[in-house]
Amino acid sequence: MSRGVWTMCWCTACILLLAGCSGWQSALDPKGPAANELAWLIWFFTALCTVVWLLVMAVLIVPLARRPAPVGDPLVLDAAAERSKMRIVVAALAATALILVGLTLLSYFANRTLAAIGSDAALTIRVTGHQWWWEVRYENDQPNRILTTANEIHIPAGEPVRLVVTSTDVIHSFWVPNLSGKLDVIPGHENVLDLKADKPGVYRGQCAEFCGAQHANMSTFIIAEPRPVFDAWLNDQLRPAAAPVSAEAKTGHDLFLKRPCVMCHKIGGTIAGGTVAPNLTHIASRQTLAAGTLTMSRGNLAAWIANPQGIKPGAHMPVVRLDGDELNAIVAYLEGLK
């Protein structure tokens, strides 16, 4: 191949590699102050360490490439040459110590900035990791304004929010790379993560600590919206579930309450009050199903309910025997829960 073709290949490869750095789940494409701080830190660390590495390599390679000097009489001492070698070693040691202390200080101050982001947060959201989905609870002083939902975290853009993360089963890790660093989610312990999204958008997050069979299918979405849109969303979600309109949906409603679904799931305004599985009060308003495993659609809803173990093997929702009509009715009901 000619040189031109090689250059072309290299350039394309580099562009493709860099393209991986942008997008809705990338720590190198920061969309908030916390992620900004971290991105700056990683770039600075990488650049400095690259420079140091290149210097060390140069110092190694130059003498290797040079013709070796003739070996003199080992018993003759050249005090001046010894001293200058000593000085070089001491200088290198001092530079190493200085760089290490400098980097430590940098990360210390970055940490302080991270800690200060949410000190005046108006909104506290409790995020609980379950195998393999996220429970999201909006705290409020008024008990009737506490909202519980799942997998999707709506936040007002441009405002700091405080996430209190904990778990009920095993250790998970909460990580939305565009907005902040990772934080471990530990059973019986509360960790606090402050973050802010500068602009409206959808940012994907992923459990970052292996937590069992479906760890890979345990994602979350932070949806940042302008304040008025967020407030409208919150008020909407606080309403009890929509009553079924069609006859089919009515049948689905009755079936849901008579079948195992009622043991695990909650639908606000009905007798379904289970708290061990995602709250379905406004399931149809979410963009995905089963922690980002499927996109929301009638077909996917039906597929999930018919065979959750085929889609997410090991997930804690069992296969419930339903015939075709029953399945359709339940899907018709859930589809109406906007």
Binding site: P260, M263, P318, V319, R321
Partner: peptide, 8 residues
């Protein structure tokens, strides 16, 4: 009978 699937 109706509220827990048989395998469970």
């Amino acid at each position: 009978r109706d509220t827990i699937p048989d395998d469970q």
